[in-house]
Design a protein around this nucleic acid. Structure first.
Lengths: 68, 68
DNA sequence: CAATAATGTAAAGCTTACTTGACATTACAC
DNA sequence: GTGTAATGTCAAGTAAGCTTTACATTATTG
């Protein structure tokens, strides 16, 4: 899952560790999410977006699941 | 985590099973999320909100983590 | 260049989201 | 009242998010 975390983080001059502490997870989790390696929980996604004063849909690039 | 899924689902006359199939998870998962038993993944939260033609923030009631 | 901060990577373990299956209860149609 | 659809609950297992530790690489700063 793609996202704009890295850019947003840099534009706020925030390190991975600072963001991790701010949203209450480990730095590893930030790295994994930044690199699209996994699908964060809703709560974490929300906290991250709030760390950037944004809404989730603005930080994460989500694609709708096809209907069946 | 609180949410409006049950109400939205009823207003769309959708069963738990229909919603589960539509968003690609088991009915158990829908039950657990509806009852706030756990924190869904961002992707699932997104698919659920799209099933109701809404955005995440409109379906799930999220609370920001306190700063430290 | 040297020192230190920031980022990247990898592995092992824990926790919890999510599945599957089975059955019990409630609601609604016939 | 009987049959069937929808919901609720419980339990055991799998998958994946997340943690912790450790170290290597790439900035950045003096």
């Amino acid at each position: 899952m793609k996202n704009r975390i890295k850019d947003l983080r840099k534009s706020k001059k925030m390190t991975q560790e600072e963001l991790a502490i701010k949203v209450g997870v480990s730095r590893q989790s930030i790295i994994a999410i930044e690199s699209g390696k996994y699908n964060p929980s809703l709560e974490l996604a929300y906290n991250i977006s709030k760390a950037f004063d944004s809404i989730i849909e603005d930080v994460f690039i989500l694609e709708e699941r096809g209907e069946e």
